[in-house]
Computed example of a mutant assay.
Amino acid sequence: MKRILFFTIPEKGHINPMIGPAVWLQKLGHEVRFHAPHDISSQLHAAGLQPLDANVLAAPPPEANRGAFFAEKVRDSVWLRQWIHRLLIEEAPAQIEGYADAIARFQPHLIVTDPMIYPAAIAAHEARVPWVALSNSLNPVLDDSVTSDLLDTVASLSADREALFTAHGMKLRFSGCDMISPHLTIAFATREFIGRDVPGVQMVGPSLPPAARGDEVPLDESLLSTTRKKVFMSFGSQIYHQPELFRKVIRVTEPMGVQLILSVNALLGTPELGELPPHVLALPYVPQLRLLPHMDAFITHGGANSVMEALHFGVPMLISPVCNDQFHQAHFLERTRAGQVLDLSTAAEEDITIRISRLLFNPHLKERVKALQASYAVDGARRAAELIAAL
């Protein structure tokens, strides 16, 4: 049995893909703990996992990283570049001690970290503990054909990043924001979606939990139409504040004869979202893994987990990326011709109608989605756990 310590960023998009591998590692007999800079104990306990500290004193994840303020700021390229530099580089030196302390207290045989947590890898290196880069994105599998503002930002901070690691005697390879571990790097993707094997990266398929993920909420399935096509729209847990986009899609879908299911978080019941017509079912938060199997189409910002889950369930997607790695998921979806990519903020409503109709009725697109679904019909969480345990 090994003691395995997970380091994660305390946001759903980073925590959720770690839950499945962690649960499988426990099932395989290993002792697993989580450490994060903010309190994530509620979700961990609901998933049958444990934080390193039984009495977590850190505050929950900051609200400044979600909602109206955040949704507006991430569209500002100058602000976003400064924010990313601060998170990845400027704050890292002061955080090393905290990760080193967690390692010293748990004495793990192995560390599994989000590959954007640079101080975690530095602390692991200095403690001589092997570490796994478990990515929540497609960063590890990017190639030169992928372009984005995020990659331009990463290029601008590369010298500072190299200096950070050189100061601690480390020379690493990077892909996008992610560290590539010399021990093991895992991406929750498939060769069929990416289009090639990636040296030094294990693509294991989707990370879905074997049981509860810990963030589930009730879903009354009797509210879902049994006679109409169903379209689901969500912009995730951080940049959900997109009232103009929701209203636009509401208008477009009203004459289409579909049911539109919205996950709108704190927008529910606000004047910004407005009065909802009868074809709309709006909820503050949706148990996505439970809802997606019932959906005929999915409109999304293109978060890596949402794309991974939709591919697993074979749901055609329209991606409207807003920031960061969402453009990377859009790139691969467009390359495989298994979905639509469209900027909803600038698109004409007629064009949106055409794109949604393609998702619902185009047989060639459905065939491409079905082919990719076959490659995503694997237990990537269990495979990741097996690779981690084998180190």
Rank of each mutant, 00 (worst) to 15 (best):
G302A: 15
F298D: 12
P293I: 13
L292C: 12
I319R: 09
I356K: 07
F298E: 11
P277R: 08
V341Y: 04
L289W: 05
G274M: 14
G302M: 03
I352A: 08
P277Q: 09
K366D: 01
R368S: 00
N324C: 07
C323F: 15
L365S: 03
N362K: 12
S345C: 10
I354A: 15
P287M: 12
G274I: 13
L342C: 03
H312G: 03
T300M: 11
V280C: 09
M317F: 03
V307H: 07
A297P: 03
Q288R: 06
Q326I: 05
I299M: 04
A304D: 11
V369R: 10
A304C: 09
P293T: 07
V315C: 05
H328T: 04
T336V: 06
I319A: 13
R290H: 06
H279G: 11
L359A: 09
R290E: 12
N362S: 13
P363K: 00
L360E: 11
A282D: 08
A338F: 09
V286E: 07
K366T: 00
P284V: 08
E349Y: 13
S320W: 02
V280S: 02
T300R: 05
R368D: 04
A282V: 14
L292D: 13
L360R: 06
L344V: 11
P284M: 04
M308E: 12
I319Q: 04
M317Y: 02
V322G: 03
S357I: 01
L276K: 02
A338T: 07
V307Y: 14
H279F: 11
A347F: 10
L342F: 04
G274F: 15
L281Q: 07
T300D: 07
A304I: 04
F313A: 01
R335L: 15
E275R: 14
E367N: 00
E334C: 04
L344P: 04
E350H: 07
I352Q: 08
L359W: 12
H312L: 02
E350S: 10
R290M: 10
G303C: 03
T300E: 07
T346W: 12
P278V: 08
S345K: 09
A330G: 09
H279A: 09
D296Y: 03
H294M: 08
L344M: 14
L333Q: 01
P284F: 06
P293L: 02
L342E: 05
G302R: 12
A347C: 15
P321A: 07
H279D: 02
H294Q: 13
F298C: 13
P316F: 02
F313I: 02
D351A: 15
M317T: 05
Y285G: 05
P316V: 01
V286M: 12
R335Q: 15
D325M: 13
S320K: 08
N324K: 00
R337G: 08
I299H: 01
Q288L: 08
A330S: 12
V341Q: 07
F313W: 06
D325S: 13
L311T: 01
V286K: 03
D296E: 07
L289V: 10
V280R: 05
H279I: 12
N324L: 14
L318D: 10
L360G: 05
L333K: 06
L289P: 00
S306H: 11
A330W: 11
R290W: 12
P363I: 01
D343I: 12
H279E: 09
R368N: 06
L281H: 13
L342S: 04
M308W: 00
N305T: 15
E367K: 02
C323D: 10
M295R: 00
L344H: 04
